[in-house]
Amino acid sequence: MTVMTRRELAWKLAPYLGLAIIAALVSPLIGSESISLNKAFSGAGGIDAEIFFFQRTPRVLLALLVGGTLAMVGACFQGMFRNPLAEPYTLGVTGGSAVGAVMAIVFPGLHFGWWAFSSVQLFSLAGAFCSMAFIFALANRSGGIAMNTLLLAGVTVSILCGGLILFLRYIASPNYLVQMDRWLMGGLEVVGYRDLSALLPLLLPGLGLLFTTMVEINHLTLGRELAMGHGVDVHSTQIRVFVGGGVATAAVVSLAGPIGFVGLIAPHAVRRISGFDHRIVMPGSFLLGGAFLTLCDALARTAMAPREIPVGVITALIGGPVFISILLKRS
């Protein structure tokens, strides 16, 4: 693990980078409308250029970012919690996020926009941050974050939020139910460069914080006490993972909704292929998760064309069996 050189690290990450690049190049060419690259790049504008540059390319970039973020947060949480079932939604961030988004959909008085953000995104972010603050207050101790409390509080908040969402569904006008369900399924449609750029002020600091913990996560997989013995500032690492992972998850969920399984499967796949060093697992998961979601989205756009399937449905349908096979091999 730590005996790896910079060159070896680069070589081990190269296949994942290659896969992400291939997915990013191929995916804009796939869709219900066939397009001509010659026409798209001719400079004359037209429908091909419109579809390629302004519909599919930002969507592919979003898929890379969303899939990559969920997978990297999943890798980080699995290492820190020492739990193979940990995923980005373990902290209950998604529950709070969903309650915020559903509120913004259900109450007509909350329909507004600010800069590149819709009210759904803003309330989703607010909900996510409220859950994070609540869970952090419950689990934080002077000597470190209590991991079991954090997990249980995350599960509890998710259940509470599920109840709140059911209540909001019950009182909502039927006109809004389809929009609610659609958000809860997760999807990458209706996105432009403006939405994409609005994501970055939260996403980049969140991911940046996570990247600072790659070495320390290796130690945390040996347990808190041995990590402390090795000289790791465990409390600081836990806070960076919690804040970085929470903020990055909140940012992507606010725009794409809760897309499941990417954050669970991609890290396990990278560990199976490349070993357990989180200096590979985390960036490798980012690249593999991004590529996976990009290809799932291409499938979502074409499998039932001209209708689109929510990408969350595709990831769950592929991810579920894959995860079960991983679990069976582990046991």
């Binding site: 693990m1 730590t2 005996v3 790896m4 910079r6 070495v215 006490e225 041995l226 090795h230 000289g231």
Partner: peptide, 28 residues
């Protein structure tokens, strides 16, 4: 009773002990 969540190689476990001396990337 120290134990690891993952099935590391022995050298990888030993190398983690150099953490106090290595830089941000953990290279040797």
């Amino acid at each position: 009773d120290p134990h690891s969540e993952y099935d590391y190689r022995a050298l990888e476990i030993v190398s983690l002990g150099r953490y106090p001396y290595t830089g941000p990337g953990g290279f040797f």
